[in-house]
Design a binder for these strands. Structure first.
Lengths: 247, 247
DNA sequence: CGTGCTTTTGAAAATCATCAAGTATAGTGG
DNA sequence: CCACTATACTTGATGATTTTCAAAAGCACG
């Protein structure tokens, strides 16, 4: 259980929309469904935001007026219980589209884990845009479908895996996420921009359990810890076995 | 942990597609995005299946050749670990669309909890159909978005709620699901077509814990149990408090 | 009216949480 | 540049919720 010290819901800076045409995040995002000059129409809808680490830019329950697209950095998405218990439902990095929901209010909060860049779209206006571009709708459905599959996998983790299995699964997921970390180097160095508390709230465990489990994985030679935020997978096969539940 | 006694993956009977126009499930399903005579084109793609209780009609990992739409009964969707641990990711009832996934293989298995009717659609052919009917794609995106929200709520439950809170959440969800149970009578009688084991695997608990928790809720006057499968909510407010985490 | 399965109940065990404290790290100000 | 403070991470001891193991009670079905 983590009691979250609230930081003001403020966006650091709002810059005029940059050209989507040159956006580094585009290859990873739904925006690549649009090409040619149509991309300029999309750019006209986008507002570039800089969100400092620790800042919340989506608040659960608030009217859902915008969609977001992460273009740099990392954000955590989470839900809270009244007493402060928190469940992180996912981490958003470059290319992640946020705000899919039929409801009129956000179903989760989003807070930057490190300095983050996002594009903000007015919900009704982007909705209108999508109606004109079926390819975009198609891409969004693909995104939503993939997230659904990921969510089911996470339910399996939360409902049925042991602490060890959860941590192994997490590390492997971080590693295979080619986009999210620094280079997926030959020796698989993983960057963990989020705090241990965040990992705990993502895996349904406590900070202490995360720490103990990682220490043990290290002492068993399955991983190396260059620093708390830099992990090297030493025995991928063993980790994969663990993650798959063949402990 | 539940070791699943495998039942053959067989569909009981295959009937010629009935007219979607008169389908009772249509108001609850994505099919209502299509109207007029276009519905006949859709009907031409559908195959009606009867799935007996206990039969599996989607097997995790199998090539995803079909979409399904539940038109009657209830099915459980689940993922397994190699040693038999099971996580039920959801229950599908009338109107539920199954098979959304970009991958070429199913991400979960589906087994009928009670005698169930489903429509089966060839994946590529329905995909083609959808391309012709943006309204359908739109509806699918809405469905996927809603399921995503539900999945996040379930992650909160699995990761952070106590056994009591989970069971209370489950009962309330069953109740508000106007479609899934028999009548949402004035006194909120809930039908639970699934076994205790299924509830356990859905809530990330064991059968024993489910049983004990429900017994306790009954002894505290929060619920009544007419039979193992028929529950009455006696103190809705208290249950809602529990489910929301204000224990 | 057994037979088999589901549900319930009981006792013991275990994983993980909680409480507590020490260590490392980073950022701040002198 | 270094000490100082705050925060994050780690480690240890204890405890509790939930699991596991075991068995009885209910029910459905042949």
């Amino acid at each position: 259980m983590t009691h979250v010290r609230a930081r003001p819901v403020v966006v650091e800076a709002v810059r005029p929309a940059e050209l989507c045409a040159t956006c580094e995040a585009r290859p990873f995002s739904v925006c690549n469904a649009i090409d040619g000059h149509d991309i300029e129409r999309l750019a006209a809808l986008a507002v570039n935001l800089t969100v400092d680490a620790g800042r919340t830019f989506i608040e659960e329950g608030d009217p859902a007026e915008s969609f977001f697209n992460v273009t740099a950095g990392t954000a955590k998405l989470f839900k809270l219980l009244p007493d402060g218990r928190r469940q992180i439902t996912g981490f958003a990095s470059i290319g992640t589209f946020l705000g899919l929901a039929v409801s009129s209010s956000y179903a989760f909060s989003a807070e930057a884990v490190e300095d983050t860049q996002v594009c903000r779209f007015s919900r009704p206006r982007l909705r209108q845009f999508i109606d004109d571009f079926p390819a975009m709708e198609r891409r969004l459905l693909d995104v939503a479908s993939n997230e659904l599959v990921a969510a089911q996998e996470q339910m399996l983790l939360l409902g049925r895996k042991t602490a060890r299995e959860r941590v192994a699964s997490f590390l492997l997921a971080r590693e295979s996420c080619a986009v999210c970390g620094i280079p997926t180097s030959p020796e698989a160095r993983i960057r963990l921009p989020m705090a241990r508390t965040d990992i705990a709230d993502y895996l349904g465990l406590t900070v202490e359990t995360i720490s103990r489990t990682m220490t043990r994985l290290r002492s068993e030679g399955l991983i190396d810890m260059l620093s708390p935020t830099e992990i090297v997978l030493r025995n991928r096969a063993a980790l994969e076995g663990l993650a798959a539940g063949m402990s």
